[in-house]
Amino acid sequence: MGKESRMSRIDTKGAGTFEYPKGLLHLEYTLSNGQMFRWRQTPDGWWDAVTGDRMIRIRKVDDPASDVDRFEFFTYPGEPDLAFIEEFFRFDVVLDKLYAAWLEADPYLGSLAERFKGLRIVKQKPEECLLSFMCSTANFIPRIMKAIAYIAKTWGEPIIGPDSKSLTHAFPAASVIAALDPYEVSDKTGLEWRAGNLVKVAAQIAAKPENWLDELSRLDYATARGELQRIDGVGPKIADCVCLFAMAKDQAVPVDTHVWQLTRDRYL
């Protein structure tokens, strides 16, 4: 699919900037909806998101008179990288066309698209996405975020910003997590039994060929999903989370008890 607009980059006080069709990138809906756990909003309106070994800092610039939305951003380490922003927010997906198709197929679904307009599926790093969701089973978002933040700060590599200062930490590699004591992880993070699953899955990933998960991204959805479920500890929901949130496989629909209940009540 083609991009929704041609974006431009202009440096303003060190920040990159771009324009995007009005309402088609809603930062709060996109970052805080539970598809990723490494984000925070600052009091002055910036959103920080960590994926892999990089951090995005982005905010919308208020301009009610404009017929487009304007954003300014940084990517660390290094200079503002618009291509990285485009890939992360998946600007290749044309939301307006999807909204029209959903409304025609199902007015209820179309009404939800209008209510949460600008919510985008991001593209995370597959290894980090998988290991993060190992922390999410039967858990709730604030506790997941707290545990993952502790894991990153304690065992991850620093992400360097201006003046060579550490801004945050990357999520540690599978090989690092595989070497941890699950009882220590549980004690420090409150993950309880999930810590054992996290270390177990990390060990299996670490034993795979380098970039194995990236290679899965190039396979079709059914094959990638099946290979993920061959990992001891990874079930259908987590496999679908990785396929959707890290591999851009939009056929994937992660189903938990809430999604199943809504589907049953509405459509069955």
Rank of each mutant, 00 (worst) to 15 (best):
residue 2 G to W: 14
residue 3 K to Q: 11
residue 7 M to A: 07
residue 9 R to T: 10
residue 10 I to A: 11
residue 11 D to A: 13
residue 11 D to V: 10
residue 12 T to V: 15
residue 15 A to H: 15
residue 17 T to I: 09
residue 19 E to H: 09
residue 19 E to S: 14
residue 23 G to H: 08
residue 24 L to D: 10
residue 24 L to A: 01
residue 25 L to D: 00
residue 26 H to S: 10
residue 28 E to P: 04
residue 30 T to S: 09
residue 32 S to L: 06
residue 35 Q to I: 00
residue 37 F to Q: 02
residue 39 W to H: 11
residue 42 T to V: 02
residue 42 T to P: 01
residue 42 T to G: 03
residue 44 D to E: 14
residue 44 D to G: 09
residue 48 D to L: 12
residue 50 V to Y: 01
residue 50 V to G: 00
residue 51 T to M: 08
residue 52 G to Q: 06
residue 52 G to I: 07
residue 55 M to E: 11
residue 55 M to S: 05
residue 56 I to N: 00
residue 56 I to R: 03
residue 56 I to T: 03
residue 60 K to Q: 12
residue 60 K to T: 08
residue 61 V to W: 10
residue 61 V to G: 06
residue 62 D to W: 11
residue 63 D to R: 11
residue 64 P to W: 06
residue 65 A to E: 12
residue 66 S to K: 05
residue 67 D to I: 13
residue 70 R to V: 08
residue 72 E to C: 12
residue 74 F to L: 13
residue 74 F to V: 10
residue 75 T to N: 07
residue 75 T to D: 05
residue 75 T to I: 10
residue 77 P to V: 07
residue 80 P to I: 09
residue 82 L to H: 03
residue 82 L to M: 12
residue 86 E to N: 10
residue 89 F to T: 00
residue 90 R to M: 10
residue 91 F to Q: 01
residue 94 V to G: 04
residue 96 D to R: 14
residue 96 D to M: 10
residue 97 K to P: 06
residue 99 Y to M: 12
residue 100 A to C: 04
residue 100 A to Q: 15
residue 100 A to T: 14
residue 101 A to M: 09
residue 101 A to W: 08
residue 104 E to Y: 10
residue 107 P to F: 14
residue 110 G to Q: 06
residue 110 G to D: 11
residue 111 S to T: 05
residue 114 E to H: 06
residue 119 L to G: 00
residue 121 I to V: 15
residue 124 Q to A: 01
residue 128 E to M: 10
residue 135 C to D: 01
residue 135 C to V: 06
residue 137 T to N: 14
residue 137 T to K: 15
residue 138 A to N: 15
residue 138 A to T: 13
residue 140 F to D: 13
residue 140 F to S: 14
residue 140 F to I: 14
residue 141 I to N: 07
residue 148 I to Y: 01
residue 149 A to D: 15
residue 151 I to M: 12
residue 154 T to Y: 05
residue 154 T to V: 14
residue 154 T to W: 05
residue 158 P to E: 04
residue 158 P to M: 04
residue 159 I to P: 03
residue 163 D to R: 15
residue 166 S to R: 13
residue 168 T to L: 01
residue 169 H to M: 05
residue 169 H to I: 02
residue 177 I to T: 04
residue 178 A to E: 07
residue 179 A to E: 15
residue 180 L to R: 08
residue 182 P to A: 12
residue 184 E to S: 14
residue 193 W to N: 11
residue 194 R to D: 08
residue 195 A to L: 01
residue 197 N to F: 15
residue 198 L to S: 03
residue 204 Q to S: 08
residue 207 A to D: 13
residue 208 K to P: 00
residue 211 N to D: 11
residue 212 W to V: 04
residue 212 W to K: 05
residue 213 L to E: 03
residue 214 D to R: 11
residue 215 E to V: 10
residue 215 E to Y: 07
residue 217 S to T: 15
residue 218 R to L: 13
residue 218 R to S: 08
residue 219 L to M: 11
residue 220 D to L: 04
residue 220 D to N: 10
residue 221 Y to H: 11
residue 222 A to W: 06
residue 228 L to C: 08
residue 230 R to P: 00
residue 231 I to H: 02
residue 234 V to D: 03
residue 234 V to W: 02
residue 236 P to W: 01
residue 238 I to R: 00
residue 239 A to R: 04
residue 243 C to G: 04
residue 245 F to C: 00
residue 245 F to A: 02
residue 250 D to L: 15
residue 252 A to H: 05
residue 253 V to S: 07
residue 254 P to N: 05
residue 256 D to G: 02
residue 257 T to C: 10
residue 261 Q to E: 15
residue 262 L to T: 13
residue 263 T to A: 15
residue 265 D to Y: 12
residue 268 L to F: 13
